[in-house]
């Protein structure tokens, strides 16, 4: 990939991320036998949010959130420039911490609860991401995405990594059943509740970036077989939407338990699988 192309991919990530999000919404609606919003709905939302009066609760709250968006964007850039997987994971952690701090910095009970829960869900999925990064390293011998994408396809070794990542995707994207940190019926969206207008648009666009972040993890599992990688992403996209539609939200402690038992467990199985059966 040329530098210009990578830059373009990173720079327009919030735009085509929005389209993915629109497709996601239509897909879910179709699963529920609804018509669903138009694919471009996220952009109509954006136009509407831009036209709203700019309300804020307090300045630090907004600033932390803006830096959440910026760091997340930086992480997405790093992905497209083929950066190191571990740096990307930790960069994402940093961005998430900014968001959590933003939630803590207002006096709203729901925002604070959302931050509490988000923090716990980070504790749940962060180890899984790291373990899976190690699995990828064991197979390809490198953490650099650019090198992984050039390596020959070795998906057989990464089957369990893929399964384990399937647990992370809904947790990061706050989808059912692992959406306790957002939980709009309980804590009214958690951290997101205190943002409005153009600032909410940033939180909204950050969702697209999060999508790109997690799905790129799945994409690189197929290494140089881009078609298979696309297939994996589409498959997990579909599977996650299906699960989102057919499960209730589980509580944050069940979330921790489930992620450690299945997600983390599969990560460990994956290491054993790679070391004992594939090398």
């Amino acid at each position: 990939m040329s530098i210009v192309f990578s830059f373009m991919l990173g720079f327009f990530a919030p735009i085509y991320g929005g389209i993915f999000y629109g497709i996601d919404r239509v897909l879910k609606a179709k699963m529920q036998r609804r018509k669903g919003p138009p694919v471009l709905q996220p952009f109509y939302d954006m136009l509407k949010l831009f036209s709203k009066t700019k309300f804020i609760v307090n300045a630090p709250h907004t600033i932390w959130m803006i830096f959440y968006f910026l760091s997340l964007w930086a992480v997405v850039f790093m992905i497209f420039f083929g950066g190191n997987l571990l740096y990307i994971i930790f960069g994402h952690l940093l961005a998430t911490v900014f968001f959590i701090i933003s939630g803590y910095s207002v006096n709203s009970i729901f925002s604070q609860l959302g931050s509490n829960r988000k923090l716990l869900s980070v504790v749940a999925y962060e180890p899984i991401l790291i373990v899976n990064a190690i699995c990828i390293y064991l197979v390809f011998g490198t953490f650099e995405i650019s090198e992984i994408l050039a390596a020959p396809n070795n998906f057989n070794s990464l089957v369990f990594t893929f399964l384990s990542l399937l647990f992370v995707v809904p947790t990061v994207l706050k989808l059912s059943p692992f959406d306790a940190s957002k939980a709009h019926q309980e804590i009214v969206g958690g951290i997101e509740v205190e943002f409005g207008g153009v600032f909410y648009e940033l939180v909204y666009a950050a969702k697209f970036l999060e999508m790109i972040f997690v799905y790129s993890f799945i994409f690189i599992l197929a290494s140089n077989d881009y078609i298979f990688g696309t297939f994996l992403v589409v498959f997990s996209f579909f599977a996650v939407a299906l699960v989102d539609n057919s499960t209730a939200r589980i509580k944050i402690d069940s979330l921790l338990k489930a992620l450690y038992m299945y997600g983390f467990g599969l990560g460990i199985v994956s290491i054993f699988w790679i070391l004992l059966c594939c090398i």
Partner: peptide, 16 residues
């Protein structure tokens, strides 16, 4: 009940 436990899909189905 389904909706409030975060089960939007079921909500839509029953409402249908």
């Amino acid at each position: 009940t389904a909706e409030n436990s975060g089960f939007e899909g079921m909500f839509m189905k029953i409402m249908g």
